[in-house]
Amino acid sequence: MLRRYLKLLGVQLKASGLQALQYRADFLTDGATSLAWTFTALAPLLVVYGERPSIAGWTFGEALLVVGWFTLLQGVLEGAINPSLTGVVEHIRKGTLDFVLLKPADAQFLVSTQRFLPWRAINVLTGVGLFIYAFWKLGRWPSGLGLLASGVLLCTSTLLLYSLWILTVSAAFVVVRVDNLTYFFTSIFDAARWPASVFRGGLALFFTFVIPLALMTTYPAEAMLGRLPWQSLVGAVLGSMVFAWVARRVWLRSIGHYTSASS
């Protein structure tokens, strides 16, 4: 079973790679866009830290780590999650989801792996570059255990992002046009460039439990710094699994109600 799906993933990745190669110019434009976005992501940070040495307990170097995680996850989101799931919305609108549902393989797997934008890996590299710069600024290096924990958190963050997207896409079965929802989601994700402790009160609760941005960027940064309590790590792993489970249930319910588009 697992082998079959790994094989399928390989075939889907190959098709995406081939599609990406059809449009080589995208490589340059994507690369340039990604670099430009990284600098715009840094701009507010530079402005804020120009005035004071630390914000909500985070120094400039430490906050850079959060931006690094933000950039890296943006690469994952835009390269591996967004393209496929935006495709689903299109499928639902045009009724071509019929073809996906007729295939003898898990429909959620098929729609989630149908398209990758390999050029967006540039964001991932930029994120890693920011980590190196941040630690150089801090004048120290992360511990092996810290790196391991942040690796685990990378998986939980990806799972969280993916689950949030599946939930968004499931809404497309009911409302059909979810462009607004996807924009809404992208703009909220933007808040993940700040350390979670910057937000207070209602916002802090919202970004922890409803759209868990804190788990996505602040936790891995703290793990790298070696100051994330182990309970938070366990909480993040369990939390992301709960999110994934809920997303799966909602997805299955949604395709049960799929009405297909008339021909």
């Binding site: 081939l18 449009y23 045009k94 009724g95 295939k103 021909s263």
Partner: peptide
């Protein structure tokens, strides 16, 4: 369906055939 298509738009049909081969095992 005459009015809908499953072929991958940007790739040659051979790639869709190969994809279906993998999916249908």
């Amino acid at each position: 369906m005459g009015q809908k298509q499953q072929l991958l738009w940007d790739l040659p049909p051979a790639e869709t055939f190969e994809l279906n081969r993998a999916i249908y095992d």
